[in-house]
Design a protein around this nucleic acid. Structure first.
Length: 635
RNA sequence: GCCGGCGUGGCUCAGUGGUAGAGCAGCGCAUUCGUAAUGCGCGGGUCGCCGGUUCAAAUCCGGCCGCCGGCUCCA
């Protein structure tokens, strides 16, 4: 007999060799129906596995992250089985669970079209009905190589060859299908109740564009049809928040075939931009930043000196002036260097925090352009901080705090990544190590959780990245802090120290919004277009009920405008319902309905886009309240 | 750039070889109305672009451009 300790601390005794599935049936038939996998002494294992010694056991359902992952991973195996049934000879690459679903990469001469996806989905449902148990077998490396080699599964062979010496190699089988897999899996295909294949896409083997492009089928799955429907419903809802759709509907910006990736900002979009920039200038002034502006076009020699020519050329645009080669700036730093160098600096002047709202152009591959999130020209809210080595830590902390304070104003959640030395880079390993450690220490000092992004730093230094989410959960890098020992070297930047000698300053590149364009995209999706009053392009819509209130409504609008509030008059000969409907669709925060009663009382009737009818009040009172809401940047 | 899908009035979409359609928006007229669509009328499209097949192409074929979802890359 063995002792099994459950999550609640209770202990049950079983004969050695009983499977987890048998145990959970004994504990609770209801839990048994929902349990997908178990955590045994901290390790995830199949419910089909046998336990032969005392253990801590926890049963996991779809409610847990691990349960979902196992569930989706098992679904990807069923997908692979269905594809191989319908298209024999299809080779398997990898098929992991991802956030909200799974995918599987295939190598097949057969092109998977949307119609075929339906066929595959039907086959998957058949496999699910067949209630095939997942069973695990551990095999030797030689046997694994032989098995998958015989079947012509060359990608699997490659995977096996890449496994570490001491790795346990396992296979999972359901019916006549077998896949190389570490597991664990759900007990049987019948658990995978509701399955939906969502799209096909190309994906390079091992994510390397030099490799063959495989066909990736994406899908998702749930233990209940209703959960799947809810998920699809949520995706539909999210589409309505898409900044590309809202950007057109709210008349914020447009992008044209005449300039792919080069957005045009309309008057309403400019209000947003300007509000963001005003806020940004105020906050930076308060924190001791000075503002500069550098040219868009600068000579090739400058870019050679900075290292961009060597490391960033594929992303740059070029032009000729007279006989000379010039480049359109992809970054603002070299321009900033020239300003720093234009005069002498004393150690007493440092740190110098030099900010620039700089318009940069980058050649991005056509396939990656995405509304305002990924464009070919954008405005970075850049700053370069020149400092003494002893000031590095405080300056990094200052920027981390600044970013946090900014994002808080908009109510954004964010996550942080630390990116290390990339393949293409300048500077010695020691310097990189030192810079990376400084950033790491700053993060630790603030207790910020972060993820390491190996090899994703800028070519001149490591960076801390701040990522924000869009409406469907894709994350976009916005803020970044990059520590740079290289540019000061390359541009021979100096300051005069206490000792009267020249010394080398250290530099930080940093952005908070990241790109104003991308930030506006995120902002739009986050608020679903219903921007807080301080950002709303139109803050108040004044709507007289009939022509007779026209004059009074005009006076109201004029007074609002005089008080710095962005107000518009809807003088059209339409019913209030119609005007309200339109103002609601435009997500205007406040509507002032003006009828006979308001005119005679000299008041206004307020309607809020979310709170509805707020009753009648004096105009001055409304103005005071709204002015305060705007000043406080209320959400 | 690569893989797959898509491209018809400002917007959403119907039309799959035989003279381009609807709703919304726009414009005109009427209506003067109390918290999410008043009625009637009128205009508007070389069907993304170029070429081919055909007596005839929005529709079939090829190339290009753009967009969407991924991959790779990045603010």
């Amino acid at each position: 007999m063995i002792n099994i300790t459950l999550k609640d601390g209770s202990v049950r005794r079983y004969e050695s060799g009983k499977t987890l599935l048998e145990m959970v049936f004994d504990i609770s038939p209801r839990l048994a129906k929902e349990a997908l996998v178990a955590r045994v002494n901290g390790k995830l294992v199949d419910l089909n596995s046998k336990i032969d010694s005392d253990a801590q056991v926890e049963f996991l359902t779809f409610d847990s992250e691990e349960g979902q992952e196992v569930f989706r991973h098992s679904t990807s195996h069923v997908l692979a089985q269905a594809v191989q049934r319908l298209f024999p000879g299809t080779k398997l690459a990898i098929g992991p669970a991802i956030a909200n679903g799974f995918y599987y990469d295939f190598d097949s001469p057969q092109k998977f079209t949307p119609e075929q996806l339906e066929r595959i989905e039907a086959e998957m449902n058949k496999i699910i009905k067949e209630d095939l148990p997942f069973s695990r077998v551990e095999i030797s490396r030689e046997e694994a190589l032989q098995r998958f080699g015989e079947k012509g599964e060359n990608y699997k062979v490659e995977l096996i060859e890449g496994l570490p010496e001491d790795a346990v190699i396992s296979c999972y089988q359901q019916g006549d299908f077998e896949d190389l897999c570490a597991g664990p899996h759900v007990p049987s295909t019948a658990r995978l109740k509701a399955v939906k294949l969502t799209s096909v896409a190309g994906a390079y083997w091992r994510g390397d564009e030099r490799n063959k492009m495989l066909q990736r089928i994406y899908g998702t799955s749930f233990p209940k049809k209703s959960l799947l429907d809810e998920h699809l419903q949520r995706l539909e809802e999210a589409k309505k928040r898409d900044h590309r759709k809202l950007g057109a509907e709210l008349d914020l910006f447009s992008i044209h075939e005449e300039g792919p990736g080069f957005p045009f900002f309309h008057p309403k979009g400019m209000v947003l931009r300007n509000e963001l920039e005003n806020f940004w200038r105020e906050e930076h002034k308060r924190r001791g930043y000075v503002e500069i502006r550098t040219p868009i076009i600068l000579s090739r020699a400058l870019w050679e000196q900075s290292g961009h020519w060597e490391n960033y050329r594929e992303n740059m645009y070029f032009t000729k002036i007279d006989e000379g080669d010039y480049s359109i700036k992809p970054m603002n730093c070299p321009g900033g260097m020239l300003i720093y160098k234009s005069r002498m600096h004393s150690y007493r002047d440092l740190p110098i925090r030099m900010a620039e709202l700089g318009l940069v152009h980058r050649h991005e591959l056509s396939g990656v352009l995405h509304g305002l999130m990924r464009v070919r020209c954008f405005t970075q809210d850049d700053a370069h901080i020149f400092m003494l080595p002893s000031q590095v830590k405080d300056e990094i902390l200052g920027v981390i705090d600044l970013v946090d304070e900014f994002y808080r104003v908009f109510g954004f959640d964010y996550h942080v990544e630390l990116s290390t030395k990339p393949e293409k880079s300048i500077g010695s390993d020691e310097i990189w190590e030192l810079a990376t450690e400084s950033l790491r220490e700053a993060l630790e000092a603030r207790g910020l959780p972060y993820k390491i992004n190996e090899g994703d730093g800028a070519f001149y230094g490591p960076k801390i990245d701040f990522h924000l989410e869009d409406s469907i959960g894709r994350t976009w890098q916005c803020g970044t802090i990059q520590l740079d020992f290289q540019m000061p070297e390359r541009f021979d930047l100096t300051y005069v120290g206490e000792d009267g000698q020249k010394h080398r300053p250290v530099m930080i590149h940093r952005v908070v919004f990241g790109s104003i364009e991308r930030f506006i995209g995120i902002l739009t999706e986050h608020f679903a277009g219903a921007f807080p009053a301080w950002l709303a392009p139109v803050q108040v819509k004044v709507m007289p009920i009939t022509d007779r209130q026209q004059e009074y409504a005009q006076a109201v609008t004029a007074k609002l405008t005089k008080n710095g509030i962005r107000a518009e008059l809807d003088a059209r000969n339409e019913k209030v319902n119609y005007k309200i409907r339109e103002a609601q669709a435009q997500k205007i925060p406040y509507m002032l309905v003006i009828g006979e009663r308001e005119v005679s009382a000299g008041k206004v009737a307020i309607r809020h886009r979310k709170k509805g009818d707020l009753g009648v009040t004096a105009l001055d009172n409304f103005i005071d309240n709204l002015a305060l809401e705007i000043k406080n940047k209320e959400l």
